[in-house]
Simulated scan of single mutants.
Amino acid sequence: MIHLYKKEIYAVFGNPIHHSKSPKIHNFFFKLYNFKKKYIKICASKNFFLDEITLFFKKGGKGANITLPFKEKIFSLCNNITKRATIAGSINTLKKCNDGKIIGDNTDGIGFLSDLLFHNIIKKNFNLLIIGAGGASRGIIYPLLKFGCNIFITNRTFKKAQILSKEFSKFGNIESVFYKNLRGINFDLIINSTSASISNELPLISYNIIKKKTICYDMFYMNKKTSFMSFCEFYGSKNVYNGIGMLIHQAAHSFFLWNKIFPDIKKTIKYLFK
């Protein structure tokens, strides 16, 4: 017998998931608008996660966020998939509609762009360097190109950067560049999309590409400065950021999909860092 949830439940699925700040963010959103809803985190089995997410919705779950390592493996569960999720090749947000159908969306890219706009650190025609050609970079390329930026992408395995640049070239100006050729380009914004900071390591880039006005953004977040942020500061950057703002904004876009309300970002930041 399936025991139904007693209140409207939302969840984030991942493995590992203990570190996730999503419940704190979303439960604050609910409190902000007096919603009698709850957001939880679920450590899903790597072999049976589709069954577990299906059960979650059968028990009355209304929406879910999907994080590593399941973002690229959830498509078969969805009845409808948004354009941005299709282009990104990954899904981080699910919504169960009143007719029982599941919508799959990706709010990572729009969340990242929203955070850059929130901090006023992006303009059209900016030269952006994305370090890394994995799933994290895939999620942000389309919104940045659509906004009107020029993207350069580099990766330790250069062929992966070439594949991404070719795939997204129809949406705007994007070019793959060898690490050793980066020094000849003036970058307005450098984005670390690799997982190097998780292990306190650095991506393979030269300090020569970092200038005083260069904005540096690590998509990874932690309670202190990441290794990438410290590296960029040491070599002169006066503007460094981590991914907590992206997390808040992608959560806000998920919340909007579920509730048709875009939550107050300033109040959320104040709550998280009080």
Results as ranks from 00 to 15, higher is better:
S22M: 04
L247A: 04
K96R: 15
K7L: 12
T67H: 09
D218T: 00
L189G: 14
I269W: 07
A251D: 03
F147I: 10
N223K: 15
I153N: 00
I40L: 11
N155I: 01
K38W: 11
F30C: 12
I209E: 03
K37D: 15
N200M: 05
G111C: 03
I244F: 10
F126V: 00
G61N: 06
S90E: 12
P69W: 07
W258E: 13
K267W: 04
T268D: 08
I198L: 15
I9C: 11
I2T: 04
N208E: 06
E52R: 01
K37R: 15
N120R: 15
N192E: 01
N173V: 01
N47G: 08
L257D: 10
C216H: 05
P263S: 08
F126N: 15
I190M: 13
S169L: 09
N34I: 08
N208F: 06
G63R: 07
N125T: 10
F220H: 04
I163T: 12
L32A: 09
S195Y: 01
L144E: 13
T82E: 14
L68D: 01
A11C: 04
N242A: 00
S137C: 02
K7N: 14
A85N: 05
L204K: 14
A85G: 06
S169E: 09
F273D: 10
N125R: 06
A136W: 03
I40V: 15
N120I: 06
I17Y: 09
A252R: 03
L189Y: 10
K73M: 06
T107V: 10
C216Q: 03
H26E: 12
N15Y: 01
K267L: 15
D264W: 13
P203D: 04
K96Y: 08
I215F: 07
I261F: 12
Y10T: 13
K124W: 08
A88H: 12
T214P: 09
N15V: 05
K224T: 12
I131G: 01
K238D: 14
G100H: 14
K24N: 07
M219C: 06
K31N: 15
K270Q: 11
I42R: 09
H19P: 07
M219S: 00
K225E: 15
L189M: 04
I9F: 09
G236V: 03
I265F: 07
N80I: 08
Y10F: 14
F147R: 14
Y10W: 05
A85S: 05
K159L: 04
N208V: 00
V177H: 00
Y217R: 08
Y271H: 11
I91K: 03
I174L: 05
I2Q: 00
F70W: 10
I102N: 14
I191K: 11
F28K: 12
I265C: 02
C78G: 05
Y207N: 09
N27M: 13
T93W: 10
D105G: 14
